[in-house]
Write a protein that binds this DNA or RNA. Structure first.
Length: 371
DNA sequence: CCAGTCTTTCCTGCTT
DNA sequence: AAAGCAGGAAAGACTG
C-alpha cells in the first residue's frame, strides 16, 4: 500500500508537472508545486498550494531565493513555454536546484545549461527578485479564512456520486487524497506538439493540486450550498418519473467558489491539455502509467485502456470534474475520429489507435523529446 | 461580443 | 445483463 502510494505520488506529480499552466503569469494559473514526491509531501500541509487550482504558478508570489526545486523547474518550464524555446536543448539533469542555487548562478552558467534561454532566465530572475508578487500571500490569506471548509473538501475529495473514487484509492491512485497535492493540474501545456518537448523532458511545471479529487471541491462545496446534489433529489439519469433532463452540459455551479479561491483575475484559465495528449502522455511514460493503459501495437499507435474508469477519473481530476466517466471520456475520444486524431479499431473494446493528426507518441518522437 | 473549438453530458440504439 | 461503442444533440468553458 505504501509502495503503491509512493508510486502514485510520483505518477501524480509527474503528470501534474506535465500538465500545468501554459502561461501562469498571464493566466494566473496556479499549478501547485509538486514535482517530486519530496515536494509533494512538503506541500501536504499547505492547502494553499494544493488549492490554487489552475490559476497560479507555484513560484508566483515567492522570492526566487526561496523557491523549492519544484518551483524552479516550474518556472523554467514556464519560461520555456513563454519563449517558445526548444526544451530539448536544455540539460534538465542540471536543473535540479532550488531557488537559492538558481539565483546564485552566473549568467554564463545559465547559458551553459539553458543555452540562449539563459539570458532570458537571467533577466527574468533579476526582475523577479526586484518585484515580488503578493498574489500568493493573498491566496494564503484567503485560504486561511476558508481553511476549515477547504480542509473538509480535501478530506472528502470524491463526492458520493463518484463510484470510482474507492477504486482509485484502493489502487493507490490517491491523487484524490490531500496528500497528493500534485495530481493532475488543470493547467495546460500548449496542446500540440511543442508541449511534448517540454513535458517529455521532464520539465516540471508543477500543477496544482487538490483538484485531484478535491477537484470537485468545486462542485461539492459550492453546489452543495446552492444546489446540493441532494438538491436534485428527483433527478436520476433516465428517470422517467421526473421528466428528462435538458440535454447538454449543465452549468457548473462551483465557479464562484473557484473564483474566490483563485482570485477573480484571469477570466480565462488556460485551455487544458487535450484529451488525446493526456492519453498519449500516459502511454509514453509506461513507468508511470501503472497499468492504466498499454500499447497493443506501439508502432501502429494502437493502444488499449486497461483501467478505463481509472483513466477517466484521472482525466476528470485534471479537469476538475469528479463526474468524469469512461463513457464520457470515450465520447470525447470518438470525436477524434472525425478529425483523424484517432482511428477506429473495429471490434475491439477499449482499443483505439492514434491517427495521422496526432503526434508525439511515435517512438522516435518520444526519444527525441525525452532527450 | 461573437464565432469557433473542445469537450462534457445525455440519450437511444446496437454490439459484444 | 452488463459493458462498450456509435453518434446525435445541446451546452459549458475557453480562445482568438
Amino acid at each position: 500500500m505504501a509502495a503503491a502510494c509512493q508510486i502514485s505520488n510520483v505518477f501524480s506529480n509527474y503528470f501534474s508537472a506535465m500538465y500545468s499552466a501554459e502561461d501562469p503569469a498571464l493566466t494566473s494559473a496556479p499549478p501547485a508545486a509538486a514535482f517530486g514526491a519530496e515536494d509533494a509531501e512538503l506541500t501536504l500541509g499547505s492547502p494553499q498550494v494544493s488549492l490554487e487550482g489552475t490559476e497560479k504558478a507555484s513560484w508566483s508570489g515567492e522570492e526566487p531565493q526561496f523557491w523549492s526545486k519544484a518551483q524552479v523547474l516550474d518556472w523554467i518550464s514556464y519560461q520555456v513555454e513563454k519563449h517558445k524555446y526548444d526544451a530539448s536543448a536544455i540539460d534538465f539533469s542540471r536543473c535540479n536546484m532550488d531557488g537559492a542555487t538558481l539565483c546564485g548562478c552566473a549568467l554564463e552558467e545559465l547559458r551553459l545549461v539553458f543555452g540562449p534561454l539563459g539570458d532570458q532566465l537571467h533577466a527574468q530572475l533579476r526582475d523577479l527578485t526586484s518585484s515580488p508578487s503578493d498574489e500568493l500571500s493573498w491566496i494564503i490569506e484567503l485560504l486561511e479564512k476558508d481553511g476549515i471548509a477547504f480542509q473538509e473538501a480535501l478530506e472528502n475529495p470524491f463526492d458520493q456520486g463518484s463510484p470510482f473514487a474507492q477504486e482509485l484509492l484502493e489502487d493507490g491512485q490517491q491523487q484524490a487524497s490531500p496528500c497528493h497535492p500534485g495530481s493532475y493540474g488543470a493547467g495546460a501545456p500548449s496542446p500540440g506538439s511543442s508541449d511534448i518537448s517540454t513535458t517529455g523532458t521532464g520539465t516540471p511545471q508543477s500543477s496544482h493540486s487538490s483538484d485531484s479529487g478535491g477537484s470537485d471541491v468545486d462542485l461539492d462545496l459550492a453546489d452543495s450550498k446552492l444546489f446540493p446534489r441532494d438538491g436534485f433529489p428527483n433527478y436520476k439519469k433516465g428517470d422517467p418519473k421526473h421528466g428528462k433532463r435538458k440535454r447538454g452540459r449543465p452549468r457548473k455551479l462551483s465557479k464562484e467558489y473557484w473564483e474566490r479561491l483563485e482570485g477573480k483575475k484571469s477570466k480565462h484559465a488556460p485551455r487544458g491539455t487535450h484529451l488525446w495528449e493526456f492519453i498519449r502522455d500516459i502511454l509514453i511514460y509506461p513507468e508511470l502509467n501503472q497499468g492504466l493503459m498499454k500499447w497493443e501495437n506501439r508502432h501502429e499507435g494502437v493502444f488499449k485502456f486497461l483501467r478505463s474508469e481509472a483513466v477517466a477519473q484521472l482525466w476528470g481530476q485534471k479537469k476538475k470534474n469528479n463526474n468524469m466517466t469512461y463513457e464520457k471520456l470515450s465520447r470525447a475520444m470518438r470525436y477524434y475520429y472525425k478529425r483523424e486524431i484517432l482511428e477506429r479499431v473495429d471490434g475491439r473494446r477499449l482499443v483505439y489507435k492514434f491517427g495521422k493528426n496526432s503526434s508525439g507518441w511515435k517512438e522516435d518522437e518520444v526519444v527525441q523529446t525525452r532527450n
